[in-house]
Amino acid sequence: MWGRSPILRGLATIILFLTLEVVSILFIANDSVFQRVKIGGALMYFKSGVSSATSNVRYYFGLKETNEVLLSENQRLREQLSIYKTKAEMADTLEGFSSVTPDFTYIPAKIISNSTNKLNNFIIINRGRKHGVQKDMGVISPEGVVGVVSSVSDNYSYIISFLNINQSVSARIEPSGAFGPLVWEGRSSDYATLTEVPYHIRVSVGDTVFTSGFSTLYPPNVPLGTIRRSTIIMGSHHNFQVRLFQNFNSLRYVSVVVNNKKNELNQFLKENEAKR
């Protein structure tokens, strides 16, 4: 009976189709469960082996570029160090200065898997719960923002890349101080768009964009890119095309940002919200 009647067979097909389609859509909606499966599963060891073998080749050919990046970062850090040294000498007499914990500390990590050719890109790094990584931590590199930790297993973390149409970073344009969300539009991995900057603010091409530090994810003043072009939307605000410093294709080492004041800040916010 089951195979004979074309109506019943058609009905069965439609039901099967709808069931599978609903399952798929539920999967899309609950992706965080699968992120945990992807980095926690037994396949991960195999996967990390394979991808490290393939990325070693790319790593070798990108060594020159990596060297230059490290060199410039060294230079920058040395300059900063000298500034802090002089500050510390001045503040030496102040009591308790040495006991101050820094706002941000960093966990260095290596990228195991990365993609730049989708609208929703994800990164897997080789640091996890054991090393102190937690959900909702920011990830940066010397050249800019990389993404946000989305789920964590013992040894690996799953990161929503900045190259993801659902991501945004609070950014600030340097000389003028204007700020707005920086989003990736899904066209090219080299460009992002800084939106919602009021029309009256004067910005020139080539101005540098930094993180604003308004979120607890990223430290302030991480360089992101330079302004390349501006368009006026609805006569009320600018949209700037920003050329990113970050080259996601050759990205290899990143740092997970640990915000030491995050809990305190969230607690504070919660208390104030309760009062209202």
């Binding site: 599978l20 859509i25 539920l26 899309i28 992706d31 897997i124």
Partner: peptide
């Protein structure tokens, strides 16, 4: 391919 689960299947 490390994409969102269910995207290609749907």
């Amino acid at each position: 391919t490390n994409s969102i689960m269910g995207l290609n299947s749907s």
